[in-house]
Design a protein around this nucleic acid. Sequence first.
DNA 1: AACAATGTTCAGTC
DNA 2: GGACTGAACATTGT
Length: 268
Amino acid sequence: MPELPEVETARKVLEHALDREICSVDDNDEWVCRPHPPGEIARALVGGRLTAAHRRGKTMWCETVDRDGAEGPTLGVHLGMGGRVIVTNDEGERVGGGPERPDRRPRKPEWDRFTVDFADGGRFRLFDKRRLGRIRLEPDLSGLGPDAEEISAADFRTRIARSRSAVKARLLDQSVLAGVGNLLADETLWRARINPAAPADELSRTQLDRLYRNLEQALQAAVANGGVHTGEVIEHRHAGGHCPRCGAEMRHGTVGGRSTWWCTKEQQ
DNA sequence: AACAATGTTCAGTC
DNA sequence: GGACTGAACATTGT
């Protein structure tokens, strides 16, 4: 489920993995750790420590130091479509909370795509059934726009409206602003009563400001309530669903290459 | 059985 | 260069 709110939760979990000596690293999943060959990330980290956990949009990265305390490489962590960060103590108990979803099915060990073991017996792992998450050294953040939680109204307006593309495609474009995913985009557009397919450069100043306000509100609500799936329109995104405000039918289509639902009456 | 799913990236095309 | 499409990744759920 990771969009900005979930990734921020994961970042906080990751903070529990800081300042502990790294004694071994399993980086053998060549897909998740690409382009690094197995062992490369391990060599870069073993003996050192993670010292800070940052986030911009859906991308996280840790600062590191080596065994002598000198600056080490940054470690990029991306959850992809369904990855989770899990940190445990020396008794295997979860620390730092995070999604409390009890596992209904037994967890296969191979779903741990990357693990860092600490000298104190603790462990950090990227748990990711779908293998769409990613770990890499020195991740390139230059292609990311400003974080959706931090962008100003004025910056938001200019960046979104700079193109003819559908406004939803602009919201999803991580180089325009970072952190909005498919569900949050639908929730935001529904709250703002704007058609997802509307050309971004044809939105009025009023609409852009309404979009901005509703993005910030949807973001706050998602953080407070535990994730983007708690959005007001999310449970109505299905065939036969109705708008929870006006009762009109919800319509489905593809916008910006992603599955999209909108209210036929309020989002014309 | 077929198809869609919260994300990114890359190749190909217009 | 910009924008769009489809594929790839592996698994689950409808």
